[in-house]
Amino acid sequence: MSLGKKIKLRRELLGIGQVELAEITGIAQSYISRLENDKFQPTAPVICSLAKGLKCSTDYLIGDSDERRKAG
């Protein structure tokens, strides 16, 4: 799952809109929209702000949750 999809999914699970997330994080709503649409890759400080605002870990946002590792 892409970073943008993770941001949108988490935001929707929390029941907040882009404007509210923007207010919580101090990140412009237009930038959040672009992130959710995978138009930009955020910097580390932006990822940290998003994780805090979305009440999740930075690992969740940037980790490759679709990757499956095989033993051996």
Rank of each mutant, 00 (worst) to 15 (best):
K39H: 07
Q41M: 07
K39I: 05
C48M: 08
A44T: 08
V46I: 10
D38R: 13
Q29D: 07
I47V: 15
A51F: 04
I27K: 03
Q41W: 04
E36D: 11
E23K: 15
S33N: 13
L35Q: 05
S49T: 02
E20T: 12
R34I: 02
I47T: 12
I24E: 08
Q29M: 03
I24S: 02
I32K: 02
E23N: 15
K39R: 13
A28G: 12
A44R: 10
Q29F: 00
A22T: 03
T43S: 15
P42G: 06
S49I: 01
A28C: 12
S33F: 06
A51Y: 04
A51T: 09
L35F: 13
E20C: 06
A51R: 08
S30V: 14
E23A: 14
S49V: 01
T25C: 15
E23D: 15
F40M: 11
I24A: 05
V46W: 01
Q29L: 01
N37M: 06
S30Y: 06
Q41K: 15
L21H: 02
P42Q: 06
S49H: 13
L21Y: 03
F40A: 06
Y31P: 01
L50V: 09
K39L: 06
S49Y: 11
S33W: 10
L35V: 08
I32W: 04
P42R: 00
S33R: 03
L21I: 05
D38P: 08
E20F: 02
V46R: 04
